[in-house]
Amino acid sequence: MEGRVDPATLHTTVLLHEVIEWLRPKPGGRYLDGTLGMGGHSLALMERAGAGAELAGLDRDARALALAGERLAGMGDRAHLFHLPFSRFEEALDTLGWETVDGAVLDLGVSSLQLDEAERGFSFISDGPLDMRMDPECGPSAADLVNTLKHGDLARIIRAYGEDPLAGKIASAILKARDKGAITRTLQLAEIVRLAYPPKMRHTARNHPATRTFQGLRIAVNRETEELEHYLETIIGRLAPGARAAIISFHSLEDRAVKRAFLAAARGCRCPSHQLHCTCGGVPSFKVLTRKPQTPSDEEAARNPRSRSAKLRVAERLGPDGEEA
């Protein structure tokens, strides 16, 4: 790569103002950004917090981490960066000796850095190797899944993670195509999926027919569902009373998972729904601050079309007795 790349030009941070207002950064606070990306949320958090604030920033994309490091260089030793997936944030906090943090942000979207580089294999707009790994050094690629999985497993991924009702038909088309040779390119797979759609659906679809298949494969490749589930189970215990967790999701699977986790933590009681009286003794650990997800303004959506599907949910950590801090 020739010349210095400005990280701010590679990715437009989504719902930046809203995240900062909800998290209320303060001097001396400790903050966690589990999906550092180009460092947009983190930079704004640190600038708003001011003197003495510290950051633990994680990303499993090594290039994104390096670029974010350049952007946060002015923070000196107050910004601690880790090449880790966000599900392993506790390793970072333990390394720093932090028991809790004063706020946490998670932006679950794929960055423009990943989408716009054909070589990363996330997009069907330009041809590239069928990869889709956020960490190119870790785990099987999308090509590995497409060329080795059985019909049922492939259909399950496309149906469950891509939410495509034609998952079985698409899986059949993929298996038929790979009998003639390995599927290794993004445009190659996109065309297989496009032709699997009936002509009428193909011509009336709002999005490219391959959109959902690519989403499903990306989620499976990066184990995004498992990553999020583990984060939601563990983040509560590492938030200080009064600290807030802000999570931005981009598709219904993620948003439903965040909503369910926040509501369960806000309810506290784990008894079966048919039980008339609580016997578990559970107390609420979260207060949900966004009853409905916050979405980008019309102005932001016009300025950054990729933000249109973003949904922000925020919850606040309660004290050990279930009361507000």
Rank of each mutant, 00 (worst) to 15 (best):
L32Y: 06
L32C: 13
L32W: 04
D33I: 04
T35Q: 10
L36W: 08
G37M: 12
G37A: 09
M38C: 12
M38A: 15
M38D: 13
M38N: 09
G39L: 06
G40W: 02
G40T: 08
S42T: 04
S42R: 01
L43F: 10
L43Y: 10
A44M: 05
M46C: 02
E47V: 04
E47Q: 13
E47N: 08
E47F: 01
R48F: 04
R48W: 04
A49H: 04
G50K: 02
A51Q: 13
A51W: 05
G52Y: 05
G52H: 06
G52T: 05
A53H: 07
E54T: 08
E54V: 05
L55H: 01
L55Y: 01
A56D: 07
G57N: 06
G57V: 03
L58Q: 08
L58A: 09
D59L: 09
D59P: 15
D61V: 13
A62V: 13
A62W: 10
A62T: 07
R63W: 12
R63G: 00
R63Q: 14
A64R: 10
A64N: 05
L65V: 08
L65C: 08
A66F: 12
A66S: 14
L67K: 11
L67W: 13
A68M: 02
R71Q: 07
R71H: 07
L72E: 02
L72A: 05
A73M: 07
A73C: 04
G74W: 00
G74S: 03
G76H: 06
G76S: 08
D77C: 02
D77I: 02
D77F: 00
A79S: 10
H80I: 04
H80D: 03
H80F: 02
L81D: 14
L81I: 13
F82T: 11
H83I: 11
H83N: 14
P85H: 03
P85D: 15
P85I: 05
F86A: 03
F86D: 08
S87P: 00
S87V: 11
S87I: 07
S87L: 11
R88H: 15
F89V: 11
F89A: 08
E90Y: 00
E90N: 01
E91Q: 13
A92K: 09
A92W: 07
A92R: 09
L93S: 07
L93E: 11
D94W: 00
D94G: 03
T95D: 09
L96V: 04
L96G: 00
L96Y: 04
W98K: 00
W98I: 01
E99G: 10
T100N: 08
V101R: 01
V101L: 03
V101T: 02
D102G: 12
G103R: 00
A104F: 03
A104C: 14
V105L: 03
V105H: 00
L106A: 01
L106H: 00
L108H: 06
G109R: 07
G109D: 12
V110D: 04
S111W: 11
S111V: 06
S112K: 11
S112V: 11
L113S: 11
L113A: 10
Q114K: 12
Q114G: 06
Q114C: 10
L115V: 13
D116K: 14
D116R: 15
